[in-house]
Write a protein that binds this DNA or RNA. Structure first.
Length: 103
DNA sequence: TAGATGACTCACA
DNA sequence: ATGTGAGCCATCT
């Protein structure tokens, strides 16, 4: 299922980096699925096993309706990963995950 | 089965 | 720089 693919990709995100919905959507096949990716993660059933906190929008901003404790918790987790979160957003130029590098 | 929703993205005013 | 509109897709009710 599409959801599982999204989960797998999110799980592949290395610690210390973040990915955008569009990026994940592109990895699943089409970048136009960005919306579906977000929705899928929102309805995700494996949030406990999927680091969805490493997933942000195209601007690097955290999700406003994070299904956990809100962007605060998400920001905290990102900081634990070594990512600097400023005003609920990260620098994709620095922490943006490059799936081609496959760490 | 069909309709509505959403953690998206891009473009234009 | 912010606000609104349109396009796309998967999941939910």
């Amino acid at each position: 299922m599409f959801r599982e693919e999204v989960y797998a990709i999110v799980k592949r995100i290395p610690r210390g980096k973040v990915a955008t919905y569009g990026q994940i959507a592109a990895l699943t096949g089409d970048r136009l699925r960005a919306r579906a990716v977000g929705n899928t993660l929102h309805r995700n059933t494996e949030q406990f096993a999927v680091p969805c906190y490493r997933v942000v929008n195209a601007r690097g901003e955290l999700s406003a309706a994070y299904g956990f404790g809100g962007r605060e918790e998400q920001a905290l987790l990102l900081r634990l990963d070594g990512i600097e979160v400023e005003n609920g957003a990260v620098d994709l130029e620095r922490y943006g995950w490059n799936p081609n590098e496959c760490e």
